[in-house]
């Protein structure tokens, strides 16, 4: 019964919501609006669920003394601090805004900025033209990388000024994005969409039950 009720709810709501997409009748649209309102009310509980799961995970880490377990206390301190200020005073309170602008923004930006160093180092070590495919990837990457910044065209238009066309690097980059890239992306989108449709049908019919948790 614990599994049958969610499966029935999933099937009924899934089919009803699917049918509302095909009927502009006011009754059908009324159901759509109503279910949407319910869903909007339920969706904030995802945040609660996420927070509870995060706390459970880190409590377990501390209990088991897994590697770097001490850092879990920093997570709790961060959550507690933001909640203590954010909930009673709101997200526009000067201390909340100060913490965001002076703690979260620099930390996030720093984490992302580090990528530039690692990418430079990794590109130097790993980007080798060992095979035909690797060479193709390498040449394409260099064209897109240099075609995406103004220095690429400056180089092309000055050093290679004898060539019959201007802005060759950015034009070639644009051609790569417009043609091979677009074709490959469209193939991926079609594949993913077909997969999503098939997965949705499996969930509606109760064949795919992993979202219920546990085994089965």
């Amino acid at each position: 019964m614990r599994r049958q009720v969610p499966l029935i709810l999933c099937f009924v709501f899934g089919v009803v919501m699917m049918l509302t997409q095909f009927s502009p009748h006011s009754f059908s649209q009324g159901i759509y609006e109503e279910v949407l309102s319910w869903a909007l009310i339920i969706s904030p509980f995802m945040l609660v669920l996420g927070t509870v799961t995060l706390i459970q995970t880190h409590v377990a880490r501390i209990r088991r003394r897994t590697e770097h377990w001490q850092y879990s206390f920093i997570i709790f301190a961060g959550i507690l601090l933001m909640v203590v200020i954010g909930i009673p005073f709101g997200p526009q309170h000067p201390i909340f805004v100060w913490l965001f602008n002076n703690v979260q923004v620099p930390m996030d930006a720093t984490m992302f900025s580090l990528l530039a160093f690692f990418i430079a180092s990794a590109a130097y070590r790993a980007f080798r033209a060992r095979t035909f495919e690797a060479s193709l990837l390498l040449v394409t990457a260099l064209i897109v990388m240099l075609g995406n910044v103004p220095i690429g065209d400056l180089f092309w238009n000055t050093v290679l000024s004898g060539l019959p066309w201007d802005n060759g690097l950015s034009d070639t980059k644009q051609w790569i994005l417009d043609n091979p890239n677009l074709s490959a992306r469209r193939g991926i989108i079609l594949g993913v969409s077909l997969g999503a449709i098939s997965q949705s049908i499996r969930i509606l019919l109760g064949i795919e039950r992993s979202y219920l948790g546990g085994g089965d």
């Binding site: 530039a116 080798r128 990457a141 990388m145 103004p150 220095i151």
Partner: peptide
């Protein structure tokens, strides 16, 4: 920032080219 990024891209492209010359 695009002016700055230009030089970083140029550096990475240069490193890749140098790395490949050494490799070959």
């Amino acid at each position: 920032w695009i002016n700055i990024e230009s030089f970083v891209h140029l550096l990475i492209a240069g490193l890749v080219v140098i790395g490949n010359i050494a490799f070959f």
